[in-house]
Amino acid sequence: MKALSTVVLLTISNLFMTFAWYGHLQFKKISWLQGLGLVGVILVSWGLAFFEYVFQVPANRIGFEENGGPFNLFQLKVIQEFISLSVFTLCAVYVFKTDKLGWNHLVGFGLLLAAVYVIFKKW
């Protein structure tokens, strides 16, 4: 249950992170956000990033093995990176609609899956 909770919380966290880091690039498509200057964009992004941390910090605390969770630090980081790139890809392709998924992206994700395997493998 702790593993699932960790993954779910990290996924929600990464949704907020993606919109905090890249969502402002889409403001030109939203009329009432078009006039925001850099300071306004930073404040909106910080507001979103707050919620990223609201989910990310508990995810890592729940998932960390020294707190009774199933993952060590390397495993938590690799999980987070895999989720981060997965959420980003889905947002870029289906929400922002700025990019198309290509074969090179699929190869890259395959390599990420290989990284997850190597990090989790007990040698």
Rank of each mutant, 00 (worst) to 15 (best):
V93D: 11
V44F: 11
S31M: 00
F19P: 03
L43Q: 12
S31L: 01
G102F: 11
N72L: 06
K29F: 00
T98C: 05
Q56F: 15
V93L: 11
H105A: 10
V116T: 12
L36A: 01
L48R: 06
L73T: 15
T11C: 00
T6A: 10
V7W: 05
A49M: 15
F50D: 06
S31Y: 00
E65I: 15
L33V: 00
I83A: 02
F88S: 14
L106Y: 10
I62H: 03
S45Y: 07
V41S: 01
L113Y: 09
W32E: 00
Y22V: 05
L43S: 03
G23P: 07
Q75H: 08
N14E: 07
K2M: 02
G63N: 03
V41E: 08
G40Y: 02
V57Y: 11
K122G: 10
G108N: 12
V7R: 03
I79Y: 09
L111T: 10
F51H: 04
Y53L: 12
W32T: 08
V116S: 12
V8K: 02
L38D: 06
L112D: 07
L106G: 09
Y53N: 13
N104L: 14
A115C: 15
G68V: 02
T98V: 12
S13N: 02
P58A: 08
S45R: 11
Q26D: 10
A59G: 05
L25P: 00
V87E: 08
Y94T: 14
I79K: 05
G35Y: 01
S31D: 07
Q34H: 00
K97N: 14
I30M: 02
W123L: 07
L73R: 13
H24K: 05
Y53P: 01
L76G: 10
T98K: 13
K28T: 00
P58V: 09
F120P: 14
L4I: 14
T98L: 12
Q34N: 02
F64W: 01
F19I: 03
I83Q: 05
W103R: 13
